[in-house]
Nucleic acid binder design. Structure first.
Length: 309
RNA sequence: GGCGCCAUAGCCAAGUGGUAAGGCACAGCUCUGCAAAAGCUCUACUCCCCAGUUCAAAUCUGGGUGGCGCCU
């Protein structure tokens, strides 16, 4: 198979447009999205989801796959994306997105096992946490798997609970990064610009979301699902507006918070991408989409011919 | 002009005689199962300025400067 062509980058660099253009150039009928929030139906303006116009006839997989109140994890992503790739052995698979973990779980695999029926366990653990504290929850994990217990970040209760869910439903926690294997040949192009430029783009992007009706979108979704604990409602742009809807902050404060949180997110993305393997960083500042596409494709072809030798 | 209050990091802010809390921002980082999540680390040789009291002052005293409120 042809190596997977990944397009990553911090929010707002312009990944989507580049990916569509690459697919068009390569004659690939689709693109796979690797974005943990664009998988939710109805969350459009706040996630800057690609519009039908912007898709230019290129099909986008793994966008709008579940409702905001339904679970979806990196595991689901890896399975579904893997199937698409397996079904299309002759295409160049272009994967675009900012969720590093999704790339990792697809490219390096996760132990396959069911992750159904974990809701009750999660609830039990949350009750235990509320009643007896974090140590009690850690003890549960220790009883399940001593190795995982030793390695896990004990301050990160959310991950501890997730590990318990997985282990107690027969799943396994996979090993360390250093033990990863590549499931597919791939190159990942990380689109980037300087910090200042990124921050400026973020501010513009958030202002645009507000103009495009972010408040209305969130208000509609929140009144429909009413649960601010949903994973989907933890997304940047949603949690802040929900705080505003609940009277905790003014709308102006919410917008400011969205900008701050988006900056933090962009930083975390960069940190994550820095340690990924098989990456090529492409500076996009001042370049047109076409120029970026040309550069990426040139590098991709180079990579492919190096592989062949 | 008189009276009162205030001045601590980029911002908010605690400390009222014993050697500068905390929060936010900024910066750095962790992460193979909710990842736009969650977690971790870092940030004032110094408290508006000057002088004094004291073994010891952000803390007390005097003066200066700046801000705020009230009164005439």
């Amino acid at each position: 198979m042809k190596p997977i062509l990944g397009i990553l980058g911090a929010t707002g660099v312009g990944k989507s447009a580049v990916a569509v253009q690459i697919a068009l150039t390569l004659g690939c009928p689709y693109v796979i999205s690797a974005d943990s929030m664009q998988i939710y139906k109805g969350m459009d303006v706040g996630t800057a989801k690609v519009t039908a116009d912007e898709m230019q006839g290129i099909e986008h997989h793994l966008i709008d796959v579940v409702n905001p109140d339904q679970p979806f994890s990196a595991f689901d992503f890896a399975q579904q994306a893997g199937k698409i790739i397996a079904d299309n052995p002759s295409n160049v698979n272009v994967i675009v997105g900012g969720t590093g973990l999704y790339f990792d779980s697809l490219l390096h695999g996760l132990d396959f096992s069911s992750n159904d029926q974990t809701a009750k366990i999660r609830q039990d653990m949350q009750n235990l946490l509320a009643e007896s504290g974090a140590d009690a929850v850690l003890d549960v994990l220790k009883g399940l798997d001593e190795d995982v217990y030793d390695q896990i970040d004990k301050n990160n209760v959310k991950r501890v609970i997730r590990a318990i869910e997985i282990l107690s439903t027969g799943g396994k926690i996979s090993g360390k990064t250093s033990q990863r294997k590549d499931l597919y040949p791939h190159v990942l192009f990380v689109l980037h610009r300087t910090r200042e430029q990124t921050y400026q783009k973020i501010n513009e992007r958030v202002d645009k979301m507000v103009q495009n009706g972010l408040l209305q979108e969130v208000a509609a979704l929140y009144s429909k699902y009413k649960d601010d604990q949903l994973q989907s409602f933890k997304a940047i742009g949603y949690k802040e507006v929900i705080d505003h809807l609940n009277g905790k902050i003014t709308f102006e404060e919410a917008v400011e918070q969205i900008k701050v949180n988006t900056r933090h997110y962009a930083k975390r993305q960069s940190t994550y991408f820095k340690r990924m393997q098989n990456t090529i960083w492409v500076d996009v500042e001042g370049k047109s989409i076409q120029e970026v596409v040309t550069e990426v494709l040139q590098l991709y072809n180079q990579f492919c011919s190096n592989l062949a030798n």
